[in-house]
């Protein structure tokens, strides 16, 4: 990426959404517990290829990489992830509804 041609730098900024902050936090937590490294994060990001930069947002790429690293580390299996994601989707159509697991512990 460094050294390539590209258009003007887009000036926009936004405040991070809760789910984005959680992705960032989970990446830090996973590193603290020895389940992944910054290099592991980057390896998966780079493997995604350039089209991922057109179609996915920053923290979408991060959560995809986080998940890949955690499965490789054996933190959980892909089957467990699939079951959990289906269960989360059942809870509702918005992030707030879906994130509210048992007893509304969500912040």
């Amino acid at each position: 990426m460094g050294g390539q041609d590209a258009g003007p730098v887009p000036p926009g900024e936004h405040d991070f959404a809760l789910w984005e902050k959680r992705v960032d936090a989970l990446v830090m937590v996973a590193q603290a517990h020895g389940l992944m490294t910054v290099d592991g994060l980057r390896r998966v990001l780079e493997d995604m290829g350039e089209q991922a930069f057109e179609t996915m947002s920053y923290y979408e790429r991060w959560v995809a990489s986080l998940n890949e690293n955690l499965i490789e580390a054996g933190a959980y299996s892909i089957e467990e992830l699939g079951r959990k994601m289906a269960e989360v989707q059942e809870r509702g159509d918005t992030y707030a509804a879906a994130a509210r697991a048992d007893g509304g512990a969500d912040g």
């Binding site: 992705v23 937590v29 996973a30 923290y59 959980y76 994601m85 989360v88 992030y95």
Partner: peptide, 13 residues
């Protein structure tokens, strides 16, 4: 989809 993955990953951990 990716928000769903964040919730799932967090809860699994």
């Amino acid at each position: 989809y990716w928000q769903t993955m964040e919730i799932a990953v967090r809860e699994l951990l």
